[in-house]
């Protein structure tokens, strides 16, 4: 018998290894990146992506999928750059309402047994429409506190790294160590047995959706803090990035098998892949494609290591 933490450790080892290799490659190509400023520049945009990835991970933990993540983060960014700055109270209420909508979606999806893909697809139009209504043209301005938060210069490590660690730790405590987190993952693993054990699956799903909405709101605020202004399409690619981040970080689509620390590492890896490619001087035409190749390589590596693990277990 191998110790119980081994599978979890394995789940984390591969994303961590990929990130390390990629980071080493970047440092080798561009030694100047190995500095406080360099690291901050490399990982700056990773903070909102990491938050969105955690949000997506919570949805995936209950065996659902959120296709509206990108438009929702864009919507939050628009609210942040307009209401949250000019009328903080109203802005906060709107964002709280948005989180509530997420929780209600979880309830509706559960009660009516609807496919989450379609409901979130419909919601992506709604959020997109609201964002266009708020900011028909790019504009708005970040609240000063969001800007200040995203540009602070803590000692030792740049804010991007500190924030990533804080996000990873917070999500880890919430999802892996709290009883609510266990319940949420239990719903993904075996809904029926959670129900028979006397828990409310409905409440668990609502909580997962509500928390996802909360993390996505944080992602939107962090994004505006970085970009200083917003537009209705600012975060559209977050939908696919967040899904890819969860899977890269060792999560699985079904079974409630997710890893918050892995998800954050996955988001960092995806962000770093972009910088790595520009350091390689790959023609811009092929940058997106090379990102696809990196995704495939990491997943192939995971398959290989999983097989090794299985063989060891078999002995």
């Amino acid at each position: 018998m191998r110790p119980a933490f081994s599978a979890d450790a394995m789940r984390l080892a591969i994303p961590a290894l990929s990130l390390t290799v990629l980071l080493a490659a970047v440092f080798w190509l561009q030694p100047r990146a190995m500095s406080y400023v360099g690291l901050n520049l490399l990982f700056n945009l990773a903070v909102p992506i990491a938050l969105a990835t955690i949000a997506q991970m919570l949805i995936i933990a209950v065996n659902d999928l959120d296709l509206s993540m990108g438009t929702f983060v864009s919507f939050v960014a628009c609210v942040t750059a307009t209401f949250l700055r000019d009328a903080p109270l109203l802005g906060t209420l709107i964002l709280a309402g948005a989180v509530l909508v997420y929780a209600v979606l979880g309830v509706v999806i559960h009660l009516r047994d609807l496919p989450s893909i379609v409901v979130s697809l419909g919601m992506s139009f709604v959020w997109g429409g609201l964002a266009v209504l708020l900011l028909p043209a790019p504009g708005g301005q970040a609240p000063d506190w969001a800007r200040a938060l995203m540009t602070t210069k803590p000692p030792l490590a740049p804010i991007a790294i500190v924030a990533s660690i804080v996000i990873a730790l917070g999500a880890h405590l919430l999802v892996m160590r709290s009883s609510l987190g266990v319940l949420i993952r239990g719903v993904g693993g075996n809904e029926r047995s959670v129900e028979r054990a006397g828990w409310s699956v409905l409440a668990a799903r609502a909580a997962a959706y509500g928390l996802a909405g909360f993390f996505a709101v944080l992602a939107g605020i962090a994004l505006v803090g970085l970009t200083t202004s917003a537009d209705a399409n600012i975060a559209l690619r977050y939908t696919l990035l967040s899904i890819a981040g969860v899977i890269l970080g060792g999560g699985e689509f079904i079974g409630g098998r997710v890893s918050p620390v892995g998800a954050v590492i996955g988001a960092l890896t995806l962000t770093l892949a972009g910088s790595f490619l520009s350091f390689l001087r790959i023609s811009p035409d092929w940058q997106i494609g090379a990102q696809g190749v990196i995704l495939i390589i990491v997943l192939a590596l995971r398959l290989f290591l999983n097989r090794v693990e299985k063989r060891e277990k078999g002995q």
Partner: peptide
């Protein structure tokens, strides 16, 4: 904007 919301 309204059009998108209605579609959704």
């Amino acid at each position: 904007g309204i059009r998108l919301i209605m579609t959704g």
